[in-house]
C-alpha cells in the first residue's frame, strides 16, 4: 500500500492527463497536419486536376498573387457574394429567430411540440434540402405559388437577379430555428426577480425588454451568432446542389469558389491557394468575434 502510494507520488502530475489526451491529440493533429502540409504543397504548384502529381510544376506563391491581383481573378467578386450571403442570412435569421423565441416564451399548450417541430429543418440532409429547394424555387414551384397568391407575380428564381436570394431563403428556412431554439432556452433561464422589480417600479413592457431582456441576452446572442457565422462561411452542400455557384458567379461563395477553381477550371494550385485563404478568413474572423464576445461579457 505504501509502496503503491510512493510510486504514485513520483509520477509527474502532468503525465496522467497527457496520456489521456494523447490518442485524441495524435489522431486529430495528425490528420490536420497531413492535410495542411499537402494542401500547402498543392497551393504552390501548377497542376491540372486529373494529372498525376509528378506533373506538378512548382511556382512558389504565384497562385496566391494571381488570385489576389490578376484582373481575371474573380476572388474579390466571390468575397462580395460571400459577404452578401452572410449578411442576407445571419441578420434576418437573428431578428426573426429572436422574435419567434419571444413569441414561444409564453405559457401556452403545445410548446414542447412546437420546439420538437423546429428541430426538423436543422437535421435534414443538406444535399436533399438543396435539391428540394431547387424544385420549390422553380418557375412552377411552391414558392412562386405563394408569391403569386399574395402579389400576383411569379419570379424567375433561377435567374441572375434572384438566385442568391433563393439560396438565402432556403438557409433562412433551415437555420432560423437554430436561433429560435437557443434564444428560447436562454429566455427561459433568465432570472425572474429583476422583471418583477421593474414592474413594481412601473416600467413598461418595452422598457423591461430593452433595459433588462436585451442586455441579459447579449452574450448568448453573440455566441449563437458566432456559431452560425462559422457555419454560413463554410456552407457548401446546399448551394452546390441548388445552383452550383451559378448562374454566372452569382451564388459563388468562397467554398463554391474553391470547388469551381479546382474541379471546373481544373486548376489545383489556385484552388488550394483559395482553400488556404478560406481557412485563414474563417479562423481569424472567428477569433476576433470570440475576443469581442469576451470583452462584452466582462463589461456587462
Amino acid at each position: 500500500m505504501t509502496i503503491d502510494r510512493n510510486a504514485r507520488r513520483q509520477r509527474p502530475p502532468w503525465l496522467t492527463p497527457a496520456l489521456l489526451i494523447m490518442p485524441a491529440f495524435v489522431v486529430v493533429f495528425a490528420i490536420a497536419a497531413y492535410s495542411a502540409v499537402s494542401l500547402f504543397q498543392l497551393s504552390t504548384v501548377d497542376l491540372t486536376f486529373g494529372e498525376p502529381f509528378r506533373n506538378a510544376e512548382p511556382v512558389g506563391l504565384e497562385n496566391y498573387r494571381w488570385l489576389l491581383t490578376n484582373e481575371h481573378s474573380t476572388f474579390w467578386a466571390t468575397l462580395r457574394v460571400t459577404i452578401s450571403y452572410l449578411l442576407g442570412t445571419l441578420i434576418p435569421e437573428l431578428l426573426i429567430g429572436f422574435a419567434i423565441a419571444l413569441l414561444l416564451n409564453r405559457k401556452m399548450r403545445g410548446n414542447s411540440l412546437f420546439t420538437a417541430v423546429l428541430v426538423i429543418p436543422i437535421v435534414l440532409m443538406p444535399s436533399m434540402v438543396g435539391l428540394i429547394g431547387r424544385l420549390y424555387f422553380s418557375y412552377d414551384g411552391l414558392v412562386n405559388f405563394f408569391f403569386e397568391s399574395f402579389t400576383g407575380i411569379r419570379h424567375n428564381w433561377y435567374g441572375k437577379d434572384l438566385a442568391l436570394w433563393a439560396v438565402i431563403l432556403v438557409d433562412i428556412w433551415e437555420w432560423t430555428p437554430f436561433f429560435i431554439l437557443i434564444l428560447l432556452a436562454g429566455l427561459q433561464t433568465l432570472p425572474v426577480e429583476p422583471f418583477e422589480a421593474a414592474r413594481v417600479d412601473g416600467a413598461s413592457r418595452w422598457q423591461s425588454f430593452t433595459l433588462l431582456t436585451l442586455p441579459m441576452m447579449l452574450p448568448l446572442v453573440l455566441t449563437t451568432f458566432i456559431l452560425r457565422f462559422m457555419d454560413v462561411l463554410r456552407l457548401f452542400d446546399v448551394i452546390f446542389v441548388m445552383f452550383a455557384g451559378g448562374p454566372g458567379t452569382t451564388t459563388t461563395t468562397l467554398p463554391l469558389y474553391v470547388y469551381r477553381t479546382t474541379l471546373v477550371q481544373r486548376d489545383v494550385g489556385r484552388g488550394s491557394a483559395a482553400s488556404i485563404m478560406l481557412i485563414i478568413i474563417i479562423v481569424s474572423l472567428t477569433v476576433i468575434l470570440i475576443k469581442l464576445r469576451e470583452r462584452i461579457k466582462f463589461e456587462a
Binding site: 490536420a32 499537402s38 502529381f53 467554398p255 474553391v258 488550394s272 474563417i282
Partner: peptide
C-alpha cells in the same frame, strides 16, 4: 481542438483526395 473543428471540409477535401489516391 476547436479551431481544427472550424476548418471547412471543402477546403481540404481535394488535398485529402490526393492523399487518398497516394
Amino acid at each position: 481542438f476547436l479551431f481544427l473543428q472550424m476548418v471547412p471540409g471543402i477546403s481540404i477535401v481535394f488535398a485529402l483526395f490526393f492523399i487518398a489516391r497516394a
